[in-house]
């Protein structure tokens, strides 16, 4: 297990540095002494012998450094030294340190905020079956705004939409939708809710599974004013108390009775990401 030994050896010299260094010291000193003795046997003086060994074998202090640098753990040691040096320097100039820390935290904070915003608005996808296969079709060259509240898609008239629906060949399915604010309830009970007005294929194309009751299909299309609706899971829980659906349960939407025929699954919240 060469790798394991390398790690164990490295850790040993990291945590018992003095002992490992002392051992290397002694080993190298022994080397020097023995080499010098050999020279002295040939009649050289001690000083002369030591000098000759240094010339022949290289400087032993330098050798120590070479051996130490060859270890992986000396890199760790160096980083640790650098870190401590950096901290010491920062402590000596607290003004500079504070400026640096504030700058960094502001930068990181701003980045995080922008990322969170972007993530919520752009990076998440709709909680439907194959969000990556969805495409939005709209009229871009809009010289004028449409009529009514829903100005964003105002140019898309009903006949235009029907042409697209019946003749498009690019998609496995298309649907149209609009977002409106509606009043639900009567008199003082009246409250604002967001309504998603959809074409018949909406739930099938998005691949949304049924939670309760049934979902709207193309057969439900055409009724005006609308008579049937599907409610979101939170609405069903909070406003309808999660009760069992029956044709008797009707909502008053803008003073018209609307039958609740189904509930969408918990994850689905509409067509707006974020």
């Amino acid at each position: 297990m060469p790798t394991l030994r390398t790690i164990v050896d490295g850790l040993r010299s990291l945590f018992r540095k003095q002992r490992v260094d002392a051992e290397l010291d002694e080993e190298l000193r022994g080397f020097l002494e023995m080499a010098a003795e050999e020279k002295m046997k040939q009649g050289a003086g001690r000083k002369e012998a030591l000098r000759a060994v240094r010339l022949e074998r290289g400087n032993l202090e330098a050798a120590k450094e070479v051996v130490r640098d060859a270890r992986w753990e000396s890199f760790v040691e160096m980083c640790w030294r650098d870190l401590r040096f950096a901290l010491r320097t920062l402590r000596k100039s607290p003004g500079f340190a504070a400026t640096a820390i504030v700058t960094l935290s502001l930068g990181i904070g701003a980045n995080t905020a922008i990322f969170m915003l972007l993530d919520a608005i752009r990076l998440r996808s709709l909680p439907v079956q194959d969000p990556q296969e969805l495409a939005e079709v709209r009229i871009t060259d809009s010289g004028h705004q449409g009529m009514g509240l829903n100005q964003q898609y105002g140019e898309l008239t009903r006949p235009l939409w029907q042409e697209i629906r019946d003749h498009q060949q690019s998609f496995s399915g298309v649907f149209a939708w609009s977002v409106n604010l509606r009043y639900v309830g009567r008199g003082s009970e009246m409250r604002h809710f967001r309504e998603l007005r959809v074409s018949g294929d909406f739930f099938r194309v998005l691949g949304i599974r049924l939670w309760r009751g049934r979902l709207l299909t193309p057969e439900d299309e055409g009724a005006c004013p609308m008579t049937r609706a599907v409610v979101s899971n939170p609405y069903w829980q909070n406003e309808l108390g999660g009760r069992v659906l029956s044709p008797a349960i009707k909502l008053v939407v803008d003073n018209e009775l609307v039958e609740i025929i189904g509930v969408t699954p918990p994850g689905f919240y509409g067509m707006v990401v974020g």
Binding site: R5, D9, L24, L28, G58, A63, V66
Partner: peptide, 15 residues
């Protein structure tokens, strides 16, 4: 050279 020698010992030992 002493440096190369002891580096080699270290390397061989770790291997």
């Amino acid at each position: 050279n002493a440096g190369s020698l002891f580096v080699a010992f270290q390397r061989l030992h770790r291997a």
